[in-house]
Design a protein around this nucleic acid. Structure first.
Length: 273
DNA sequence: AAAGGCGTCAACCGCGGTTCC
DNA sequence: GGGAACCGCGGTTGACGCCTT
């Protein structure tokens, strides 16, 4: 038994929205709110699928949407968040006020992805061929990233040390933990920065065995899930430090090296400044 | 000037997760 | 507890404009 179609395909209009339709949609939502999207088109007098209305509103017509070129800061954040989260566009969008997941996804696919050097791809293939435990999420293709995430989730669930934040541990320790982990390590590597031998990995967070990058990913996802009230009770226990940790990672001083490929395309940078 | 290629982005589709009854 | 309804997400498609030949 398949899922019922969300609307009668014969009845609804498809394709680009006209200014008139936009106006009807905006006017109705302004006055009444959208209610349930399924019934919205009928109530508003639009010959559109409810999903289509929702998409048009959330991706284009919402008043808080910021249009126009992405700033350098925004690009920087997208790179960093993508390194942590992979193709979790909604999660990334939630940290970029005024930007939608669709917009970020398109921008990534058309502008940012091509700035990642080919040699990273080569590194990726070499590393993924060696051992799955050494997988670096930020270097993975989408499919590899997804499978790595699944595997990492499984590892996480078996690694009690990743489930608990030591009582009374200051946030800076959390940050150090994160930075010394694979997630922190991934930033320089993602940008082809050579990390010197004084790079320290604590015994409990050996990068090849702890999957601490997943720690980061799970914390952020847990936070997102918590925000939407949908996180399962046996998932990572979230506390305030997750947000602080991510912010610290995002705010880590960029001396121009870490995001080298942001400067890869002068034309794009010109547009974003 | 015209045709074809390419890049961008709005919109669609299908699926998984959540909520409600 | 189970199923239907609904929502939201990520991947994909298609239209359109620009560029190159």
């Amino acid at each position: 038994m398949g899922r019922l179609p969300c609307c009668d395909k014969g009845e609804v209009k498809k394709g680009a929205w006209t200014p008139e339709e936009d106006k009807i949609l905006v006017d109705y939502i302004t006055k009444n709110g959208h209610g349930t999207w399924r019934s919205f088109p009928k109530l508003a007098g639009l010959r559109r699928c409810g999903k289509s209305c929702r998409l048009r509103w959330t991706n284009y017509l919402r008043p808080d949407i910021k249009r126009g070129a992405f700033s350098y800061d925004e690009e920087q954040k997208i790179f960093q968040l993508h390194a942590l989260l992979g193709n979790k566009w909604a999660s990334i969008a939630s940290r970029l006020p005024g930007r939608t997941d669709n917009e970020i996804k398109n921008y990534w696919n058309s502008h940012l992805r091509k700035r990642i050097p080919d040699k990273d791809t080569a590194t990726l293939q070499a590393s993924s061929a060696s051992t799955s435990a050494d997988i670096k999420p930020n270097l993975l293709s989408t499919a590899e990233h997804e499978s790595a995430s699944v595997e990492a989730d499984a590892r996480l669930s078996m690694d009690p040390i990743l489930h608990t934040s030591p009582p009374g541990l200051p946030d800076c320790d959390f940050f150090l933990r994160a930075w010394n982990s694979e997630a922190g390590e991934s930033f320089p590597k993602a940008h082809a920065i050579k990390v010197e031998s004084d790079y320290v990995v604590g015994p409990a967070f050996n990068a090849s065995s702890s999957g601490a990058s997943v720690d980061e990913i799970c914390k952020i996802e847990a936070e997102d899930a918590t925000n939407s009230g949908s996180y399962s009770p046996n998932s990572y226990k979230v506390d305030k430090s997750s947000d602080i940790t991510l912010d610290l990672l995002l705010d880590f001083p960029n001396d121009g090296e870490y995001l080298q490929y942001l400067q890869g395309d002068p034309d794009d940078n010109k547009a974003s400044t």
